[in-house]
Write a protein that binds this DNA or RNA. Structure first.
Length: 284
DNA sequence: CGCAATACCTGCGAGC
DNA sequence: TGCTCGCAGGTATTGC
């Protein structure tokens, strides 16, 4: 479900609702394998209870809350990855506990951060202040640049793409190349930059990569502005859908007419992922 | 080493 | 109506 724009919307929503003067009074793990670290759900709960959340950060698709102890010092970080179907919801703690609720984190004012995850791929971490998040969460260590931050340039992207022969679609899904881009937006940025998804990454010319880098920034910014996609299980912290997918050029539009040239959109599998493109607008 | 395949799950829609 | 099959937004691991 969630890619960078959706996770960014969730991050902003979390920062709107959490306040450092609210302590975590209890936590309950309904599905223990959601907890990736420490080794047991009990130690996760022990770490997080008593903390106050200072603010939420995002790195790629990972969410990280900086958590303070009662004395105001850093206690550790609460890491969350929504994977395919995870949702972080801000609810009254009296709200009935539905079928797919995996973790509940109760705050001192009767509110609750509730992790709901149908497919159970989502993960959480408690990282003590004595540890480093990038060492505990392996995915953080090898992550490439954030596409919406200053260092992300066409030059950077070109350099990354020169390293591999993989199809450009596959390369774009590698977090070491671009942090946070997922299957929907990879298809969308390739359409917008008129690049065929099977093109070997290394063969893209510098000006094609210029167009690609610009499309990545443009598509992600516009998706955030639209509140993320409407796709199935994605919602913000209040359970509300976004609006971006209504504007998709190719994703989910297999056999439908291209919005530019009317030719039916092709759908293939590439690197095991559904891939959508227009073979007229994007060559073939 | 780079890369493809697979594993992790549940649910839904399509087709029979 | 009810079955089976294929597929779904991500990432870690395995093995070629």
């Amino acid at each position: 479900m969630p890619e960078l724009p959706e996770v960014e919307i969730v991050r902003r929503g979390l920062n709107d609702v959490v306040a450092p003067d609210r302590a975590i009074v209890s936590a309950e793990v309904l599905l223990p394998r959601t907890i990736a670290h420490p080794a047991t759900a009990e130690s996760f709960v022990a770490g997080i209870v008593g903390c106050r959340i200072k603010h939420w950060q995002r790195r790629g698709k990972y969410l990280l809350a900086e958590c303070l102890a009662a004395d105001g010092k850093l206690a550790g970080w609460w890491g969350v990855h929504l994977r395919m179907t995870g949702q972080m919801l801000w609810v009254e703690s009296a709200t009935p506990v539905a079928k797919h609720v995996r973790v509940r984190v109760l705050l001192s004012d009767g509110k609750e951060l509730r992790f709901v995850d149908q497919r159970t791929f989502g993960k959480m971490w408690w990282i003590d202040a004595s540890e480093e998040p990038q060492e505990i969460i392996s995915g953080l260590g090898k992550m490439g640049l954030e596409p919406l931050e200053d260092g992300f340039t066409a030059k950077y992207l070109y350099h990354q793409l020169q390293k591999t022969q993989r199809p450009i679609k596959t390369a774009l899904l590698d977090p070491a190349v671009v942090a946070g881009l997922g299957n929907i937006y990879a298809d969308e940025v390739l359409f917008q930059s008129r690049i065929h998804p099977k093109t070997p990454a290394r063969e893209l010319t510098a000006d094609r990569v210029d167009a690609l880098a610009a499309a990545i920034v443009d598509v992600l910014q516009r998706a955030i502005a639209a509140g993320g996609t409407t796709f199935s299980s994605y919602t913000n912290v209040h359970g509300i859908n976004g609006n971006y997918i209504g504007q998709a050029w190719v994703y989910g539009r297999g056999d439908l007419p291209c919005r530019v040239c009317d030719r039916p959109i092709s759908k293939i599998r590439l690197g095991g992922r559904g891939t959508h493109y227009c073979d007229r607008c994007q060559g073939d």
